[in-house]
Computed example of a mutant assay.
Amino acid sequence: MTAKVDLENVLAKMRDPRKGLSDEVFHFIRKVTPLINVDLLIQRNGRTLLAWREDEYDTGWHIPGGIIRFREEFQSRIDAVARVEIGATVESDAAPCNIAELREHDRGHFISLLYRCSLTSELDPVRMHSGEGRPANGALSWIEGLPKDFYPAQLFYRDWLEGKR
């Protein structure tokens, strides 16, 4: 079988890429091309809203974000991240306040667009970490500065969390 036939078979099995990719297809694509994601910088009273993340790559607090889907507008992904990752709605600036690139990581090659956002709805109190024990995956917390257990792949946001930008 030629490579072209193999790729055609993969495409034939792929559902609508605008709705996301199967894990198998996603893991292939992230190994061969950069992916673009939006991250939501939500700050209030000197604190940043962070989400706890545990996955096969690492563990720690991170700025909520998500990979832009095929033919998706930036604003649509920002809205989806707010809904799925923090259970709220947000308003965002029209343009990113920072663009960062992560090249040398097991997750792949990412171009991250950081958008300043403000909440337009209340956060679900059930999602908030109590401060006791290890957070559940996806738990939220308002954190001042850079937490010691920050998700390593996002350390390029250090200055934003430490108030230097």
Results as ranks from 00 to 15, higher is better:
4 K>R: 08
64 P>E: 05
4 K>Q: 04
34 P>W: 02
75 Q>N: 02
17 P>V: 13
161 L>P: 00
127 R>I: 09
113 L>C: 15
37 N>W: 11
94 A>V: 04
145 G>R: 03
121 S>T: 14
126 V>M: 11
90 V>A: 09
115 Y>W: 01
81 V>M: 11
19 K>H: 10
25 V>G: 01
99 I>D: 11
134 R>C: 13
22 S>F: 01
65 G>P: 02
31 K>F: 00
153 A>Q: 09
71 R>V: 03
124 D>A: 04
128 M>F: 09
85 E>M: 06
100 A>L: 07
108 G>T: 05
111 I>V: 15
30 R>T: 13
164 K>T: 06
112 S>Q: 07
53 R>D: 11
136 A>F: 13
165 R>A: 13
156 F>I: 14
136 A>W: 08
15 R>M: 03
106 D>C: 00
131 G>I: 09
62 H>T: 05
78 I>F: 06
36 I>F: 03
62 H>A: 11
67 I>T: 13
136 A>M: 14
135 P>R: 11
36 I>D: 12
84 V>P: 00
121 S>M: 12
118 S>P: 00
79 D>M: 11
14 M>R: 04
28 F>M: 12
31 K>Q: 06
67 I>M: 04
130 S>M: 14
134 R>S: 13
34 P>M: 07
72 E>I: 03
156 F>H: 11
23 D>C: 03
130 S>C: 09
53 R>P: 00
83 R>Y: 10
21 L>R: 02
66 G>P: 01
26 F>D: 12
159 D>P: 12
32 V>Y: 01
48 T>I: 10
91 E>I: 04
17 P>M: 06
24 E>I: 04
153 A>L: 10
40 L>W: 13
60 G>I: 09
34 P>G: 03
36 I>W: 03
106 D>P: 01
93 D>L: 10
141 S>Q: 15
34 P>K: 02
155 L>F: 10
130 S>F: 11
48 T>F: 06
20 G>S: 07
58 D>G: 10
42 I>H: 01
17 P>I: 11
45 N>K: 13
116 R>V: 02
157 Y>T: 15
116 R>Y: 05
82 A>Q: 07
132 E>H: 02
8 E>R: 09
108 G>F: 04
106 D>V: 09
164 K>F: 07
42 I>P: 00
132 E>D: 15
2 T>G: 05
41 L>F: 10
120 T>K: 00
59 T>Q: 12
2 T>C: 00
96 P>M: 06
134 R>A: 14
108 G>E: 10
23 D>P: 05
158 R>M: 12
159 D>A: 10
